[in-house]
Amino acid sequence: MTFDSLKPQVTRILSDTSGSVDDRLTQVCELLRSNIAYYDWVGFYFKNGDKEELKLRSYAGDPTDHTIIPFGKGICGQVAVSNENFVVPDVKAQDNYIACSIHVKAEIVIPLFVNHENIGQIDIDSHTADPFSPEDEEFLQFVNRQVAEIL
């Protein structure tokens, strides 16, 4: 399924106010994981109140022990500080990588902004080496803009 065909589905899920925000975020995670072959784990992390850490809010894929990530630690923690997209073609080449699964070979993390403030991120783990393209970044930025509208 192409990113263009997923966009209206993302918008539809997020605009359906009959479900809670967390339910809608989980549905988006499940949609992406089930329709993009190399998206093996999809999750949303958000700033945990006033703490300098991220808290896992919604995800699709195997359970993870990494429900809290300090700012600066791992790829997600680095994005919380840098406010920039981070594409990791090979997680073994990253010194500051937090291993969630022995099967993960690549990761992409895109910050989520509300009123120009980085309040969270979408995190994708892949069991495929170097699968992410600029199109993935553009699509995930679209997803985050849609999510920002319901927060």
Rank of each mutant, 00 (worst) to 15 (best):
S101M: 01
T128S: 10
E107I: 07
H103E: 10
V104L: 04
E135A: 14
N96T: 09
Y59H: 05
D136Y: 08
N96I: 09
D65T: 13
Q78I: 14
D130Q: 13
I98Q: 04
A60G: 09
A129Y: 13
N96C: 03
P131S: 14
D62P: 06
T67F: 08
D136E: 04
Y59F: 06
N96F: 00
K92Q: 15
E52W: 12
I119L: 01
A80V: 07
A80C: 10
E84F: 11
I124D: 06
S101T: 05
E137D: 06
V91S: 05
D123R: 00
S58F: 07
G61A: 04
S82L: 08
G77V: 04
I98W: 01
Y59P: 07
E138Y: 05
H116N: 15
I68R: 07
V79E: 01
T128L: 10
D95R: 15
I108D: 02
P70V: 01
H103W: 05
E138H: 02
P134H: 09
A60H: 08
K73R: 10
V79L: 06
F132M: 13
L54Y: 08
D62H: 03
A60N: 01
A106E: 03
D95P: 14
I122Y: 09
V109P: 08
N85V: 12
V114P: 05
S82E: 12
I75A: 06
G61F: 00
E107F: 05
D95Q: 09
E135V: 11
I102K: 15
